[in-house]
Amino acid sequence: MIEYLSIPTSAGVFDAIGAGPHDGRPVLLLHGFPEAAVEWEHQVARLGDEGYRAVAPDQRGYSPGVRPADVADYEMDHLVDDVVALAGALEWSRFDLVGHDWGGAVAWWAADRHPDRLRTLTAVSTPHPRALGDALAGDEDQAMRSQYMRDWRSSDTEKRMLADGGEPLRRMFEWKVPRGRVDDYLARLSEPGALTAALNWYRAGSPKAAIEAVTVPTLYVWSTEDVAFGSTAALATEQWVSGPYEFQMLEDITHWVPEEAPEQLTALLLDHLHRH
C-alpha cells in the first residue's frame, strides 16, 4: 500500500511516496523531468510487496517545501546532498539507489561521491555522465539529441512549455504515459514557481568536479526509442563502471521507461537487488 510521506531535512521538507515494512531493505528512487515521485508508483508498490522499504521523493524544486529561488541552489552538489540528507532523515546508513532521467544523473553522481552509502545503483535511461560527455563531443547524433538541454535554459522556456494549456509539455510524453498521470504532472508544474524550479536543474550548469568510474554494483537500463540518449553513450557506459555491471536494452520502448514498461523494469530491478 502506498503511503504519502513528509521527510524533514535541513534543506526543507520533501514530499514522498513509500511502501513496505520500515525495517525492510531500503531503496530510494529518484524521478526525472518533467515528472514527480509518482512516476515510481508501480515500482514502489511492488518493492513494498517484496519486503523492501521503498521511498520516492519529489526532489528539490518539485517539493513545495524545498523550492529555493536561486539557480545556484540546483547545482549537482545540492542535489546529491539531498540524497544523503533524505537517507539520514530516514535513518538509512546504507541503501539501494534508483534514478531515471535527471534522477539517474543524480544517482550516478551520488554513487561516485558516496559509494560507501550505496548497496547498489540502478540508472534508467541516463548514461554515465562521462560517457554522455564523450558522446556530446564526438557523436553528432547525441549532440542533436541533447540540444534541448541548452534551449531550455532560456528565460522564455516556461512560457513556451505552458502555452496552449501546457500542450508542449504533454507532447514530451509521446503519448506513452497515461493521460491522467500527465494531467497530474502538468497541474504540479503549473503551480507558481514550480516549472521554473524544475528548469533550474538545466540552468545550474555542469558540476565543477569530474566524475570517475562507479564502483558499486550497477544496473543500467536503456531503451532503443529513447529520444534523449542515443546508443553511443549507452554502450560506452560500461567503461565507466569498475564494479559489477549489467546492461539491459529494452526494445521499442521510449524514454518513459518506468511508466511505459513498468513490469519489465520492475522485474529487472528486483533481479538486480536480489543478486546483490
Rank of each mutant, 00 (worst) to 15 (best):
P8D: 03
P8A: 11
L28T: 08
L29D: 02
L29Q: 04
L29T: 03
P34W: 01
V44I: 15
E50A: 15
D58S: 07
Q59F: 03
P68S: 06
D70N: 15
E75H: 15
E75L: 11
M76I: 08
H78F: 10
D82A: 09
W92R: 04
R94I: 04
G99P: 00
G99A: 01
A107Q: 01
W108I: 05
A110F: 02
A110Y: 03
A111H: 03
D112A: 12
R117T: 07
L118C: 05
R119V: 03
R119M: 02
A123W: 00
T126G: 09
S155N: 14
S155R: 13
D156Q: 15
T157M: 07
T157Y: 01
L162Y: 06
A163C: 13
G165S: 08
E167P: 12
R171T: 11
E174T: 15
W175E: 15
D183V: 11
G193D: 12
N200K: 11
G205H: 04
S206T: 12
P207S: 04
A210E: 10
D226T: 10
D226F: 04
V227S: 13
V227M: 14
F229L: 05
P244M: 10
Y245D: 08
E246K: 06
F247C: 13
Q248A: 11
T266V: 10
L269G: 06
L269Q: 06
L270M: 08
H272V: 13
H274E: 14
